[in-house]
Computed example of a mutant assay.
Amino acid sequence: MPDTDAPTTPGPEEDVVDLLLAQHARVEQLFLLVIGDTGDTRREAFDDLVRLLAAHETAEEEVIHPLARTLPGGGGGAMVDDRLDEERQAKETLKTLIASGVDADGFDTGIILLRDAVLTHARYEERYEFPRLRQHVPADRLRTLAAAVRAAEAAAPTRPHPSAQSAKGNLAAGPALAVVDRVRDALRKPSVG
């Protein structure tokens, strides 16, 4: 079973860009597992993927995107709006895939479409948003932001919620959604004994 709780990059000198890049790589690995496996292995990989995507996007919406809007050079607002639109569409698709389940007809096509959309979204962040962060945000602040992203992820919902897609929306609804998601996750886990 993939371990999404494992650190994605080592060391206290990790900055937020390194953290997010490592998470993008983990997302890509999980997509490969979901697409390439079957049965319980596929289901577990999909569950891990859903949790990682939900936490990752929530943290970006709360920490990274608001900062990216304010960076010098203009265009930050439009760039973030494009990323938020991509995230909303991915959350809608993911929500549909969760509802139908990994064994449903059409899941294979849906997961490939989702993978392509999510990885394209990640590449846009890597090409346009992350370089601007490195250019305009001091290194010590980037390291502090890594801790802020980890904290946001720890309190994030474990399922996609397309309606909560801004820093304000996540901060207002996120804690309640996170509790509901974690209770649902606990109820779905098979009991050991």
Rank of each mutant, 00 (worst) to 15 (best):
P2V: 10
D3H: 02
P7A: 10
T8L: 13
T9G: 14
T9C: 06
G11F: 01
E13F: 14
E14L: 12
D15I: 02
D15C: 05
L19I: 02
A22M: 03
A22R: 00
R26G: 03
R26M: 06
V27G: 14
V27T: 08
Q29A: 15
Q29V: 12
L30V: 06
L30W: 05
L30K: 06
L30E: 10
F31G: 08
L32F: 07
G36P: 05
D37C: 08
T38C: 08
G39P: 11
T41V: 12
T41P: 15
R42D: 11
E44I: 06
A45C: 13
A45R: 03
D48I: 10
V50K: 09
A54C: 09
H56Q: 04
H56K: 03
T58M: 14
A59N: 06
A59L: 01
A59T: 13
E60K: 01
E61H: 13
V63K: 03
H65G: 00
H65L: 00
P66N: 09
R69A: 08
R69E: 12
G74A: 03
G76V: 03
G76S: 06
A78K: 06
M79T: 15
R83Q: 10
L84V: 14
L84K: 15
R88S: 07
K95P: 05
T96Q: 13
A99W: 09
G101W: 10
V102E: 02
D103G: 12
A104L: 03
G106I: 15
F107H: 00
T109M: 11
G110C: 02
L113D: 12
L113N: 14
L113P: 07
L114W: 07
D116A: 00
D116Q: 04
V118R: 09
V118G: 08
L119F: 06
T120W: 10
A122W: 15
Y124K: 08
Y124N: 10
E125D: 14
E126A: 01
R127S: 15
E129R: 05
E129G: 07
P131S: 04
P131E: 13
Q135Y: 08
H136F: 07
V137F: 01
V137I: 12
V137W: 00
D140T: 07
D140S: 05
D140M: 01
R141S: 09
R141D: 04
L142K: 06
R143W: 13
R143F: 03
T144H: 15
T144K: 12
L145R: 00
A147K: 05
R150F: 00
E153P: 07
A154C: 04
A156S: 14
P157L: 08
P157T: 14
P157V: 05
R159P: 12
P160Q: 10
P160S: 07
H161E: 02
H161V: 00
P162D: 06
K168S: 09
K168P: 04
G169K: 00
A173M: 07
G174E: 01
P175A: 06
P175N: 03
L177Q: 06
L177Y: 01
V180S: 05
D181G: 11
D181I: 12
R182Q: 13
V183F: 09
R188Y: 05
G193M: 10
